[in-house]
Design a binder for these strands. Structure first.
Lengths: 192, 192
DNA sequence: GTCTATAAAATGATAGAC
DNA sequence: GTCTATCATTTTATAGAC
C-alpha cells in the first residue's frame, strides 16, 4: 500500500517556475503575476503558499545555499591544501551541474542577496570562503584572488549559460572540472 | 580662450549614477526615482534627458557595446588563430578594466538584454562571436566552448567584483590577461 | 533645465467567499 | 487550495508652470 504522492504539488511546481523565471528575467524582473500566470493560477493562490515574494526567493535559493555551506565546511576539513582545492572543485562543479541556473543566479543576481544573507556565510562571505581555501588562507595575494574569482564565477555562470544547456551532465561536469583544475594549478587527472 | 566645459553636465552624471545603481541593484531593481534621488533632482528632470527608462539603459550600455563590437571585428582580421586569440584577450581585458562593472553587467543582467539587442551581434551573438574566434570557427567542440565561456564570463565578472574593486588597473589587467591566456592555451609572456 | 502635479498601470499584499 | 475583489504603494510616463 504505497501512499501515493499528491502529484507534483503546486508548491514544488511554483518553486521550479519561479527559478526558471528568475533565471530569465532576474529576481527583481519577475513579478508574482508572472509566476501566477505561468502556473495558470491567480496571485492569491501564490500567496497561499508563500507569505511574501522574499519567502519565495529564499525557498528557491535554499537548497543551493545549504549544499554550498556544507561544501565549504567539508572542504576545509582536509589537512593538505591540494586536497582542499580538489574537494572544492569537484564539489562546486557537481553543485553547478545539478542545479545549473541556480548557482549562476547566486553569482549574478543582486535580488538574490537577501536570500543569501540567511546563509552561514552571507552573500560576500561565500566568495571569501572559497577564495580563502584556494589561496591557502585569508591573505591578500592578488594573483590567487583573481584566479579564484575567475574560476568560480566562470564555472557558475557556465552552468547557467544557454549555450551549454544542451550539454549532458556528465560531459559538462568533466569539462568544468578540467577547466577549474587547470586554472587553480591542480595536475591533470588520468582518464579512467 | 578655452571654451570652458559646462561642468559635469547632468546627462553625464545621470549615466554614471545609473550605471552604479544598475550594478548594485540590477537594471530591473533600479527605478527612475532612485536615480533621481541619487542625483538630487526629481523624476521629471530625468525624463527631460531621456524619454524612457529603456533609453537610459541603452545609453549606459552603448560605449561598451560599441567597443566590444569593434574588438570582435578587429580580432577576426588576424589571419593566424593565435594572433586572433591574443588580440581578443588583450582587448577584452582592457575593456573590462576600463569599464569594470559595465561588462560584468552585460554578462549577468537580464535587464540589459534589450540594450544589447541593438548591437551588431545581439545579446547571445557576442558570446557566439567570442567563442567562434577562440574555437577557430563555429564548430561544436564542447571543450573549446566551455573554456571560452568560463574564461570570458569569469574575466567579465571579475572586473565587477567588489573584492577586486581596490586593485589598481595595471595590476588587474596583468592578472586577468595571465588567467585568460592560461585558460585559452596561449603561452606565458616574458615579463618586460 | 528643473519643478509640481497628475495620470495610468503594475506591484506586493490582504480579506473573505467557495 | 483556489478564487474574486480590493488596497496601498510604486512605477513609468506626461502636461504645464517657472
Amino acid at each position: 500500500m504505497t501512499t501515493v504522492e499528491p502529484v507534483a504539488d503546486t508548491r514544488t511546481r511554483l518553486l521550479a517556475t519561479a527559478l526558471r523565471l528568475f533565471s530569465e528575467h532576474g529576481v527583481e524582473g519577475t513579478s508574482l503575476q508572472m509566476i501566477a500566470d505561468e502556473l495558470g493560477v491567480t496571485k492569491a493562490a501564490v500567496y497561499y503558499h508563500f507569505k511574501t515574494k522574499s519567502e519565495i526567493t529564499e525557498a528557491v535559493a535554499e537548497p543551493g545555499i545549504r549544499e554550498l555551506d556544507q561544501l565549504v565546511v567539508e572542504a576545509a576539513k582536509h589537512p593538505r591544501h591540494g586536497a582542499r582545492v580538489d574537494h572544492l572543485v569537484d564539489g562546486f562543479v557537481d553543485l553547478v551541474v545539478r542545479h545549473r541556473v541556480l548557482v549562476a543566479l547566486f553569482s549574478s543576481d543582486p535580488g538574490i542577496d537577501a536570500a543569501l544573507a540567511k546563509s552561514v556565510h552571507g552573500v560576500e562571505g561565500f566568495k571569501q570562503a572559497l577564495i580563502s581555501i584556494v589561496a591557502g588562507g585569508p591573505e591578500l595575494d592578488v594573483t590567487a584572488r583573481v584566479t579564484a574569482i575567475v574560476a568560480f564565477t566562470g564555472i557558475a555562470m557556465a552552468g547557467g549559460a544557454p549555450d551549454l544547456a544542451e550539454v549532458d551532465d556528465e560531459t559538462l561536469r568533466r569539462e568544468l572540472v578540467r577547466v577549474g583544475r587547470r586554472l587553480l594549478g591542480r595536475p591533470r587527472r588520468r582518464v579512467c
